[in-house]
Each structure stands twice: as structure tokens, then as C-alpha cells.
Design a protein around this nucleic acid. Sequence first.
RNA 1: CGGGGCGUGGCGCAGUUUGGCUAGCGCGCUACAAUGGGGUUGUAGAGGUCGACGGUUCAAGUCCGUCCGCCCCGACCA
Length: 482
Amino acid sequence: MASQGVTPRAEDYSRWYTDVVQKADLADYAPVRGCMIIKPYGYELWEAVKNGLDKRFKATGHKNAYFPLLIPMSFMKKEAEHVEGFAPELAVVTHGGGEELDEPLVVRPTSETVIGYAFSQWIQSYRDLPLLINQWANVVRWELRTRLFLRTLEFLWQEGHTAHATREEAQEETLRMLDIYADFATNDAAIPVIKGRKSNQEKFAGAEVTYAIEAMMGNKWALQSGTSHNLGQGFAKAFDIKYLDKNNEQQYCWTTSWGMSTRMVGAIIMAHGDDKGLRLPPRLAPIQVAVVPIYKNDEEKSKVMDVVLRVSETLLTLGLRVHIDDREDVTPGFKFNDWELRGVPVRLEVGPKDVEKNSVMLVRRDIAGKAGKESAPQDDVVRSVTSLLNKVQTNMLKQATEFRDANLHEVANLKELKKVIDEGGWGLMPYDGSAEAEEKIREETKATPRCFPLDQEPLPDGTKCPITGRDAVGKAYFARAY
RNA sequence: CGGGGCGUGGCGCAGUUUGGCUAGCGCGCUACAAUGGGGUUGUAGAGGUCGACGGUUCAAGUCCGUCCGCCCCGACCA
């Protein structure tokens, strides 16, 4: 429960991030390098993310299922690009029960292969399609450099896997799930995102096309926060996922996969956090209202606590997540800072003055200082608290959107791009999608192509990529990225 | 794997250059008391194989050698 100030955000962003994660009691490193221990408060935040997504998946007809952690090495090898892409980051089990195994098993880095196997068993006819499955699981990727939540050896995620009768349906599903991610990020996490298509170099190993949502962090770096892949028929052919169509002919399925991970928690921290610590959007905050009683002696305490309990009770019956901070051993000032560090969106203070005036003091986390404080009558507390939570949610999205938009710039060439990147923004520039252009840009600016945003107008005929001089396929965002 | 940095109570560090007495400091922790509308204060306490191994020396946290681990910057990535 240690609670110290955090490193100012502007001073050393990476230090600030680690500070916030650890001091707000979200997570810690584990004994194994790069692995993470998620503490209860961090896990509650992840559960809020899970619930927000799961609700949406259920609404679109997806069913949850569970597939094994261990995958035969031979499965990985069935799809050539897939194994090539993942081979360097596989954890491999070679021994079991004290014996060397005939065939090594890999700890899943993702489950296209086993699920492909399962789908091949489940699907016989066009009547079995579409098959819409989601799995909540942990996966392991042997990353070289790790950071809490953003990149860990083992991480928690959901991976959706679907099979369809036609290419069009698969494509529709791919984009539908991208929309769901964007909707979740925007409306629940209060993070505005850019939906876009990844370049060939950055697409998922084995996918035909990969889409992603990209979010801007507090240091203006980009974070890929969710991906949706149209897998074409690659996995269907590798795993023999076939159905009999209406004409009694065997057809290969068209499959998709999509995922969002505990990285989203990192996104929330970095998109919203400030010098005082975490700022959590009310929809996802494990604690929405922290109630802090203030008193000097037993007499005041009993009066104050009467109000605290009565007010909290009404809020709780409404389904709000309320926490009464009745710690005796720390001062109110300490508690204020503590709840700010933990990102609680609304703090409700009750002291002797409030008891006297039949009021409570409401303090919002999204606006610093006096402007974020207001007194509210006790008998109207339900309305003022719910309305304040809504305001905070809306305002956090507004703040994040304004911040992002102020840092997006259209650029025409490498020189302009370099200037924008050096100043910490994102540059939108015509791009041919090639690896050479990407390499050149990375060398000059350290930025990488994030995505071709989906909402763009087609380029005028003859628009060239300023790096290679070849025809551009569209405008892409370039940014420094995690 | 390349470049840089660091290993000293739970955490953050000082001490190492120039070897020397009982290894210090801050935070946290324990106990008691006062305090309490923005990170309280006092008193008393607990807690250490100085990363590991070997060497030099009357004497090593400090010098030498080997090894191990961690962090940051790159390449790779949700």
C-alpha cells in the first residue's frame, strides 16, 4: 500500500510508467524475466476490460470455448508463414514426466493452429457456418524486451476465431470485430483510436490482411491496441477446414482471428495518466467513487460516519462501485493523494462542515485543482454522482481526442515527416507499403508505419510514395511505437 | 546479440576514486502517543551472506580476476 509521488510524466516517460504501475498496485515483475504478476487492483481493471469486450462478443453471437495450452510442434509447421513468423518467439516443452518427448510441444503463442484443427472436426456442412468462437486465455511469446502490461513473456488476452463460407463474409467479420474494438476503446476506455490496415511487413504471420486500432499515448507514441485478421484460406487449407456446400461440393472455409490483450491496460494507463498517477475512465474503474470521511474526534467521527454510510448505501444500491476509505492510520490528505494515484474518477469527501450543511464534497479526477471540486446536497447525491461520472467519462475521451488530433499531421515527404516525428507527432503520408520505404523511414526517424487509416479518400491517380517514387497505395500514419 | 549503466536491510540510495575501527541515510515496517478539510509529527524498536566464487593484503563493501543477475538504448514484437 506504499503511496509516494510518481516521477513527473515529462521527465522520464518510461520511468513514470513503471512508477505508476507499481505504485498504483497494478502489477509487478515475476521471478522469471519478463513475466508479470498482476495484483488484485490491476486484475480488477483487466476484468473490467474483459467484461466490456465479452458483452459485445455475446451480442454478436460469439461463443466462448477453451483450447489447450500445449500445441504439437507439427501443428505450428503446417502453415508456412505462420511458423516462420512465430518460430523465434516460441517456448518449447521437450520433456514430460521425466522423459524426453517424441515430439516437442510449444506453449501457444496464439491458437490458430489448434483451433484450426478443432474447426476441421466441427465443420461438415454449410449449415455449421459461420462458426463464431472466442477464447479467453494466456499465451507465451519469448520477447526480448519486456514492459509491464505492454509486452510481457506471458500475457492474457482474448482471441476470436471464426470460419465462414465466403471470402466476403470473412472480410465483413474481420471489419466488424475491428469496429467492436474501436467501440470498446472509445466508449469504455475513453481512448480515441485510428482504425487501419497494417502494411505487409507488419501483418500477422499467415494472414491475408491485418487490421488494427492504433492509440496515441501520453508521450505521443503509438500503441497497437487490438488486431483483426482476415486469414483467407491459408489456415483452412493447412488444417483441412472444409464444408459441403448447397451443391454438395467440398469447399474450404474462410477464417478470421482477432485479439485484444492485457496491453489494453497499459494503453489506459498511458493514454490517461498524469503527474499524479493513474486516471481511470469511470466505465472501467474498479472503484468509481472513493469516500473519504474527515473528522478530528469521536463525536465528529460518529456524525460523519452516519452520513458516509447513508450516502454510500444509496450509491451502492444503484450498482455504483463505491469504496469507503475508513483507514484510521492515515490522514485525509494522504487518502486524497492515494486515490488520485490509483485513478479513482470521483472522490466523495464528508467532513464536519458537510454534516452541518447537509452536503458532500465531490472531486473529479479529470480536472485538477479547485475547478474539479464542487459541493452537492446530500439528498441529491445519487444524481450528482452519476452525472459527474458521466461527465468524467465524456471529458476524458474529449481530452484524449484533442490531444491526439493536435498531434496528427499530414506530411508530403521524408523531411516533413522527420520534423513531425521529432516533435512527437504522427505523420500521415502517401506510402507504397514497401519494406524499403519502411526501412528508410525507420533509419531516418525511428518511426514505423502504423496503418493505412480506413476512413481516407482514395488517392488521386499517380500519387507517388515520396520515399521510393513508386505508386502509393494510400496514406499511412507513421509514428514512434511501442 | 551489439552499445551504455547498475548490483549494499522490503524499496530507493550514500560509502568504492585514495583499503582501516561497530557499514550509514531516506522511505517503508513494528509499538506507543499526539495529530487529522491536500502526502502529519515525536519517541522507541526490528531488519544486512555489501550479487557469487577465487585472489592480493596485517586488514577488502572498497583493489585484481572469473562468473551470475538486473536495468536502459537498439534489432524483434499484442
